[in-house]
Every structure is written in C-alpha cells, then in structure tokens.
C-alpha cells in the first residue's frame, strides 16, 4: 500500500495546506513511511481481542445539565485577528 501524489494533493486540500511540488514529494515520502508502519501493525495477530475505540477503560463520563458562566464577549473575541460588532470576522464565505 502506498500513497500517490494525487492523494497527497487531495488530503493537503482537505487540510487547507498549500504545498509546492517539492513539499508534496516530501510529504508523499513521510506519509508512505507512516503507512508502512501501519502495515507492520497489521501483521500482528489480534484474533483473540475484541475491537475497541479507546485506550482508556472509562465509560459514561457525563456531566449534569447545569449552566455555568462562560467567557464574556470581549474575552471570547480577544484572540481573534478581526472582529466586528461582537462577531469573529473571517474571509467571505460564498454559500450560493
């Protein structure tokens, strides 16, 4: 199993990363070595074990539905590059 250059381009686009040709090639190499590592793991016999999604043995970690005070508006917006009228401002999103 190996990853093609087009697949690297695709996942880079999904991650909103702009990569030049040299970077694409470098990432292809790194991703392929990661996939190789996964293949190594796949060779381990886990037939006796049931699949699991989490490494910790916790279940039902839940909280009561009781409101607490969050951040006030100015504090919430403090880390934002651009704000206006209490809103975070991002480059225009074209929806239609």
């Amino acid at each position: 199993m190996s990853i093609t250059l087009d697949e690297v381009r695709h996942v880079a686009r999904l991650a909103r990363l702009e990569l030049d040709e040299a970077e694409l090639l470098a990432f292809q190499g790194e991703l392929n070595s990661l996939l190789g590592r996964c293949q190594e793991l796949q060779s381990i016999d886990v037939g006796e074990l049931s699949p699991r999604t989490h490494a910790v043995a916790l279940t039902n970690v839940l909280a009561d539905d009781t409101p607490t005070q969050g951040l006030d508006q100015s504090l919430a917006l403090r880390g934002a590059a651009v704000t206006r009228a209490g809103l975070f401002v991002v480059p225009t999103i074209i929806e239609e």
Binding site: V82, R84, A85, G86, L87, F88, V89, P91, T92, I93
Partner: peptide, 10 residues
C-alpha cells in the same frame, strides 16, 4: 454576511 466584507461568526 456583513456588508463591510468578510463573514461574521457567532
């Protein structure tokens, strides 16, 4: 969508 340009997020 703000008139001044850019999208506001709440």
């Amino acid at each position: 969508h703000t008139a001044e340009g850019g999208s506001g997020v709440d």
